[in-house]
Write a protein that binds this DNA or RNA. Sequence first.
DNA 1: AGCACATCTGCATACGTGTGCAAGTAAATT
DNA 2: AATTTACTTGCACACGTATGCAGATGTGCT
Lengths: 339, 339
Amino acid sequence: MAEGKVTSLHVARRAGVSQSAVSRVFSGASASEQTVRKVRKAAEHLGYRPNPLARAMITGKSKIIGLVVAYLDNQFYPLALEHLSNALQEQGYHVLVFMAPNDEAAVEKVVHDLMDYQVAGIITASVGMTNDLTQRCTDAGIPVVMFNRGQDGSGISSVTSANVAGGAQIADFLVAGGHTRIAHIAGWEGSSTGRDRQRGFTDRLAHHAMESVAIIDGHFDREIAAQATRDIMAGPQPADAIFVGNDHMAFAVMDTLRSELGLSVPDDVSVVGYDDVPLAAWAAYDLTTLRQPLVRMVEATVDTLLAKITDAARPAQKIEIEGPLILRGSAKIPEGWTA
Amino acid sequence: MAEGKVTSLHVARRAGVSQSAVSRVFSGASASEQTVRKVRKAAEHLGYRPNPLARAMITGKSKIIGLVVAYLDNQFYPLALEHLSNALQEQGYHVLVFMAPNDEAAVEKVVHDLMDYQVAGIITASVGMTNDLTQRCTDAGIPVVMFNRGQDGSGISSVTSANVAGGAQIADFLVAGGHTRIAHIAGWEGSSTGRDRQRGFTDRLAHHAMESVAIIDGHFDREIAAQATRDIMAGPQPADAIFVGNDHMAFAVMDTLRSELGLSVPDDVSVVGYDDVPLAAWAAYDLTTLRQPLVRMVEATVDTLLAKITDAARPAQKIEIEGPLILRGSAKIPEGWTA
DNA sequence: AGCACATCTGCATACGTGTGCAAGTAAATT
DNA sequence: AATTTACTTGCACACGTATGCAGATGTGCT
């Protein structure tokens, strides 16, 4: 009932036990049934809540998860943030946001900040300069999970969708649709996500004895994707289908095709994206896209991270989650494919 | 250079001073020039950084700002989050995210969590059950600033755009455009933001001796806004212009008008939004809208909050920032108005 | 020179919790 | 009955920093 700084000592006095006993009850250590009862009762009466900062100081680990994120333009990431925060909140953790740095010096700063706050774990999303950052935090013993991005060499956990398989699915789909001049505006070359989608896509095209008429790195950027679209359509072999590395760029591609070049989607050009952000379902775009199962990816991320926090010896995991191709109106639907 | 827990005591030993001296140097208290030099040098050599948790424990105030946010669907809020976090990071603060609760019990939990972490201040955005939450935190002595929402009675600081004036601007614009059947899909009735825009709008219409043909509460929700659109266009007086309480709903309105009802925007119906999120500039929507100056709103929010943190006696401020109407293609442009 | 005054410094303690250690108790074993 | 074993519990200390207090040092004044 009473407000204003009630500590474990107050609880202890009222329950007629020592402060250590109170601590043990609330930190999950063993205590006799009777002690637990007395302590809980006194605590409830006083409105006691353990101080997480004091707890963090003693244990060296706070109940804070550092989320490092570079940008929030792409709708996929705010939604990921929302779900991550909710999921972690349910487990008693909270998300401390770190805007990802561009230059070397800023990386330094963020790494230090993360360690200063003794974060229990780190999730990175949409980050460019991730190599250095993740490695250093891992070296410092802080569990790291990369969300929607992998890193081949080093033993760092990651959760992504099955990007190679996704790229392949889209290749099958566009080939079945009878397209003959297929182009690809890829995700950033520096991200595993972009590379894997591209590889799955081109390998599968090759399997159909086909080849992209153009492959351009879109850097996950609207403006660059728009310019890539102009280049592709002005080239010697204008595409009749474009697979775009993510939805965010795909919207720019569609805008450019329709408003700037006066072309029809999908009559002149089919467009396929990747992510299935909510906006993809809106009538203005109605984008055919490969869905990344956000909720399951978030669950996997949280599970992996918390497991690693609980058991530091746990080896790194690279989790891939399959997603379905969502058929909408931005791309010709082959005979027999059901929407 | 050395890693692994270097404390003020280590620095003190190396500098040949007491631990208190080190503390004073880093907490800005007074110290002789010579001491400062010795301490800084030793600190740099050892790679010392003050522990913010320990500091928070002793002072009762952490360098953490609690950001309470309900949803991130509306692009306006993730962008606000991004800018807020960046601005606060520059001032040495960090953002701890709290997903806003729907029910009473969850509010309780969030309030407690906020106090447990001894946040230095709180920013609320897009929150419904804000009354109780803000009041209790204010009572507990924690500075609160409401972002993009006001609260009339109680003395809580807020930063919004000039919503009444904005609504009025839009009324002038639509009247000048020669529209005769103007409707309004309002923002949520429970938010000051929605109410103010509506009031400015209808008052100004009245000033032109006009009246809305329909006013429907859209609750800032796409689905509800879409249904409102259907109702308005199926009514006895189908609108030739609709002012929508924010961009997020306006997109749904445009989708419904064009794809579902087969109407042309702006030939059949002009649509005007509020916010000017990036998406509004994309070709698929090209939405005429009243810009909320995000960067300046963020600056004002951070300034107000930090000022209140530094000086608790500072009275609450309600800051309103004017924004321009951005003329695009979704609404008829009156003669003489320049885009 | 003597005194008032301002400034700096170190000592000690506090913040609120977790945890090793030893003492205590009750139950189980020989 | 004596001894081992398994649990509890309280004591004391640690985590890393801030800060009141008293002593020390230096400056300016009459």
